[in-house]
Computed example of a mutant assay.
Amino acid sequence: MPELDIYTLIGFVGMACIISAYAYQTISQTPNPFIQHGTNLLGAALLTVSLLVHMNLPSLVLEGFWAAIAIYGLVKAFAARRVEQ
Rank of each mutant, 00 (worst) to 15 (best):
S20E: 07
A79P: 02
I18V: 14
I71D: 09
T39G: 03
A21W: 09
M55K: 05
L47M: 15
I10T: 04
H37W: 15
Y22W: 13
V61I: 15
W66C: 05
A70H: 01
I35D: 02
N32T: 07
T30D: 15
L62H: 06
A16G: 13
I6C: 11
D5M: 04
M1P: 14
M1T: 07
V75Y: 15
H54F: 07
G73E: 05
G38I: 00
I69P: 01
G73S: 02
F65S: 06
Q29C: 03
G11T: 02
F65M: 11
A44D: 02
R81V: 04
V13Y: 02
N40V: 01
L4N: 13
Q29W: 00
E84C: 04
E63D: 06
R82T: 03
S28N: 10
V75Q: 09
L9I: 11
I6L: 15
S20Y: 12
Y72V: 02
T26Y: 09
M55T: 10
W66T: 06
H37P: 01
Y24A: 10
M1L: 06
E84H: 08
N40P: 00
L4A: 12
G73R: 03
E84A: 15
L62P: 00
C17G: 04
T48R: 08
N40S: 08
P2L: 06
L62D: 04
Q25G: 08
L74S: 10
L41V: 03
A68E: 10
Y72F: 14
L4Q: 10
S50H: 13
G38P: 00
L62V: 11
F12P: 14
D5F: 03
D5S: 06
I6T: 14
C17R: 03
V53P: 11
S59Q: 14
V13L: 10
F78D: 07
L52V: 02
V61N: 06
A23D: 02
A23F: 09
Y72H: 12
V49R: 01
A23C: 07
F65D: 05
Q25L: 13
H37A: 11
E84Y: 07
Y22F: 14
T48Q: 07
P31K: 03
A67M: 08
D5N: 15
S20N: 06
Q36C: 08
A21I: 01
F78A: 13
A21K: 03
T26S: 14
R81W: 13
L74A: 09
L62N: 08
P33V: 03
Q85N: 14
F34V: 07
L4D: 13
Y22K: 09
G73W: 07
L62E: 13
I10S: 01
M15A: 15
N40F: 09
G43P: 04
Y72K: 12
N32I: 09
P31Q: 11
I27C: 08
T48V: 09
I10C: 02
T8V: 15
Y7W: 15
V61A: 14
P58D: 12
G11W: 01
